[in-house]
Nucleic acid binder design. Structure first.
Lengths: 207, 207
DNA sequence: GTCTATAGGTTGATAGAC
DNA sequence: GTCTATCAACCTATAGAC
């Protein structure tokens, strides 16, 4: 058999980096998780999508649990939703925070839900959230800090409880994402995002 | 064989109805779902817990999907949380509604989460929620109706949006239950249930 | 690091006796 | 309606060649 043409860099089908097997597997696994659920997350399915053999999965990640752990670590990206908005109009900041939160939840919800399918996975994901410090208290602290500053500046009602207001916004956004994810299409019968933001905004109005 | 003593109603060990195989299987299945997750919900595991053979599972419920559907139907009990509290103090009613919602979510959350872990199950549960009309808009309508009546009576601020206030309470309670269910133990760093209820209550205060 | 091949176990589902 | 027995399919994980 003649040597392969040098112009053909790799025998691989889709331009994937030469030794990026591990990355390819992780990406494929997250895709399967998001599109079909953890029940379909088998070494074969993942390997086929990554374009490798299923033995490679066990080479890179000891076992199935190892793959899941790596997926959680990769998928649980931290939320940084209030970086340079420290001095905007409170209502506008609320709006912006809600948008960031929505994007964040859409990203991590598949992982969160997958962990609920197995009682043994629950504490593992909970431990990751704890260790990487990406729990909901971070979002509360972040948003509440801004609200407190605005209270000092007299732009937000002093009677408002910043932590509670922040939590209400986060929870409302979370629930909204969950409903959409669950295909509960009763959105037209529920108050709009704007109506909720307006109502939370009322809590901030100076008396 | 002599007739059985009339005083002994049933020969079964634990007060189970004489031919309640179907019921026993359903109960066992729900127990497995709650305690271990849908990943461990196999015909064998369920059958063993119900004290029947696994062939019985397929006799009563065509296949695995049939069992899951029956579980959803049985587990998605409707929420009736504001029956005879039409004339209490708004804050007390909010408190009571939150308690009822918490009990409700604790009940249905395992089923909801199970459905989210598999893309094929999602539309099935969504369809049940739609058909049995147990979606979140029911809770909103219920609570908002009460708030509207209180607005008429002048006990609740007319500027308040009843639907939005109801939704905020429901979402905050939902998120709270989800966090507990997920073992996210940051509750001590988050505002208390009372703080949230107080803040929502502020939305109702007459100006 | 990646492959083929395969062992060993579990699962969904059916057949047929009682 | 309930059982025992069984299958085919699928899954995790390993062994060993390249």
């Amino acid at each position: 058999m003649p040597p392969m043409s040098a112009s053909e860099e790799s025998p691989r089908r889709r331009g994937r980096p030469p030794s990026g097997g591990r990355e390819a597997i992780l990406e494929a696994a997250l895709t399967v998780l998001r599109d079909h659920g953890i029940a379909h997350l088998t070494s074969r399915e993942v390997a086929a999508r990554a374009g490798v053999s299923d033995a490679s999965v066990y080479y890179h990640f000891r076992d199935r649990a190892g793959l899941l752990e790596a997926m959680f670590e990769r998928g649980m990206k931290p939320l940084l939703f209030l970086q340079d908005a420290e001095d905007g109009d409170p209502r506008a900041v609320l709006r912006q925070a809600a948008a960031s939160l929505e994007a964040f939840f859409d990203d991590v919800l598949p992982i969160l839900h997958a962990a609920q399918s197995d009682a043994e996975l629950r504490p593992i994901v909970a431990e990751y959230i704890e260790r990487k410090d990406v729990g909901p208290h971070r979002g509360v602290e972040n948003l509440a800090g801004y609200l407190r500053a605005q209270q000092q500046a007299g732009r937000v009602n002093r009677r408002a409880n910043p932590d509670a207001v922040a939590m209400l916004l986060i929870d409302a956004t979370f629930a909204r994402c969950v409903r959409r994810h669950m295909l509960i299409r009763s959105e037209e019968r529920l108050p709009s995002r704007e109506a909720l933001l307006d109502e939370i905004g009322r809590l901030l109005e100076p008396t």
